[in-house]
């Protein structure tokens, strides 16, 4: 299949999909994450908005939002932090040895709750996907990413609302 020819037409600014930085501010994203932590992780579990470098070995979970704004809400932290979060979420039901499946489930569910609440403040109608867990998905464009960096129990964690990688390619102007 050949690539479509450049017609020379340029998109008007109003045709562009909205950027998340224009739709969601950092304080709102932080509040959404804080509420999720207080309700799900524990009532004393605060998030401190201080950026710190993530460790080399991280876990990410995310949910996709598809609508007027399309992208993903991605939660990233160190693997040890992910395990500690899982124990906190399971509470008294946490097993002595955590299964990888439990950690994926816990991290995915946190992304799901944060993602659901992010979706609610973005323009609709939009659809929320099921949570996924794995290597941190690459962000498409820095201009279309809202990211907050926090500390939970002194460990770094980021919440990123980011456009998919292909959006940037679509916006490239052929030479």
């Amino acid at each position: 299949m050949t690539a479509p020819r450049d017609t020379g037409l340029r998109r008007r600014a109003s045709d562009r999909p909205p950027a998340v930085v224009d739709l969601l501010d950092g304080d709102t994203l932080l509040q959404i994450a804080e509420q999720a932590w207080l309700a799900l992780v524990g009532e004393d579990e605060v998030l401190v908005p201080l950026p710190a470098p993530l460790p080399a070995d991280t876990s990410s979970s995310w949910v996709e939002i598809v609508g007027p704004w399309t992208g993903a809400v991605v939660l990233t932290c160190g693997r040890d932090t992910a395990a500690e979060l899982t124990r906190a979420l399971l509470g008294e039901h946490a097993p002595a040895v955590l299964e990888a499946e439990d950690v994926d489930d816990a991290l995915g569910e946190l992304a799901n709750v944060v993602g659901g609440n992010v979706k609610a403040v973005l323009p609709g109608p939009s659809v929320l996907g099921l949570p996924e867990v794995g290597a941190t998905p690459p962000a498409g464009s820095r201009a279309d990413t809202r990211r907050v960096a926090v500390l939970w129990r002194g460990q770094p964690l980021t919440v990123s609302v980011q456009s998919p990688l292909h959006t940037e390619r679509e916006n490239e102007v052929p030479l």
């Binding site: 979420l89 399971l90 039901h93 439990d102 489930d105 816990a106 569910e109 799901n112 949570p131």
Partner: peptide, 12 residues
């Protein structure tokens, strides 16, 4: 709920 962790949180 498809999340076992969330089922535990709901029950708690």
């Amino acid at each position: 709920d498809d999340s076992r962790v969330m089922r535990q949180i709901v029950i708690r």
